[in-house]
Nucleic acid binder design. Structure first.
Lengths: 83, 83, 83, 83
DNA sequence: ACACAAAGTTCGCGTC
DNA sequence: GACGCGAACTTTGTGT
């Protein structure tokens, strides 16, 4: 099974690892930024839990619409099956 | 009742929400970039699962890693497993 | 750190492992039963995707109610903060 | 429109839903039991994380495990990491 | 091989 | 400050 595996071009592999780690570092940095914002909001008297809820709700809304469409499609399909 | 109490806070709250959502969008974008890199690596024949393990191993400190492995071997040995 | 760790009473450890593996086997058996039900339903002409959707929706419903109550509580709290 | 098409199927569908939900409830109960075992082990001083690793390792075949580790070492070695 | 669903892991929160 | 709880993210397995 290993015969057909990648030749492991060392430089190429290293390049992938480096680029991935770089992006993950960026991602972690942004996550820290988000954490800082929540902390700042908290220090100004906001309830972080509420804030997270608001963000979550706004994120879900589009999904909900997609879910609805999907469900509609699914039900139409179901009617097709049963008709 | 909140109409008279929070007119200023509303703008501030909106600002927090906007900034957090912006950062979360950035984070998602970077996550997509990482996914693309893994896909590219896969298409070149690399084993993505192993690649992820490599990244993960490099992230944790060698000390921690050794401690974990040693403890794991203690448990396995106690069970009579071949470590 | 390891000084205070468990003495690794071999028999006790083995007992835990056995009991956990036993329960996981039971769980896997039930999962198989569920799989069989879906297969049976499929063989009778039902769309498995729809079926899964129905199950998922019914599972979410109670959560949704809880979410709503939780959200209400959170908003009341928010008004308390801003008042 | 579906009233005339699926009167029989409805009962059958309900039966499937009920049975599936029953099995899922059983499955959840067993999952709780597993959780309890881990908690109990933890209270006795065992390292839950390691315990989970032990269970996971015993689940996968020794062959697979060795192959994975070997491939992992190939990658790490290619990167000049200490395996 | 892909996409969806399940499991496991981690993190932040509230509690005691 | 340690613990358990719950949510979010990540990873693994499965069905198409």
């Amino acid at each position: 099974m290993s015969d057909v595996a990648a030749p492991i071009a060392v430089e190429q592999l290293r390049s992938f690892v480096d680029r991935i780690e770089r992006l993950e570092a960026d991602k972690a940095g942004i996550a820290d930024g988000i954490k800082d914002l929540y902390s700042e909001a908290k220090s100004l008297g906001y309830d972080v839990k509420i804030l997270r809820k608001v963000i979550a709700l706004r994120k879900i809304k589009p999904n909900e619409r997609r879910e609805t469409e999907e469900l509609l499609e699914v039900y139409l399909h179901a009617l097709g099956e049963l008709a």
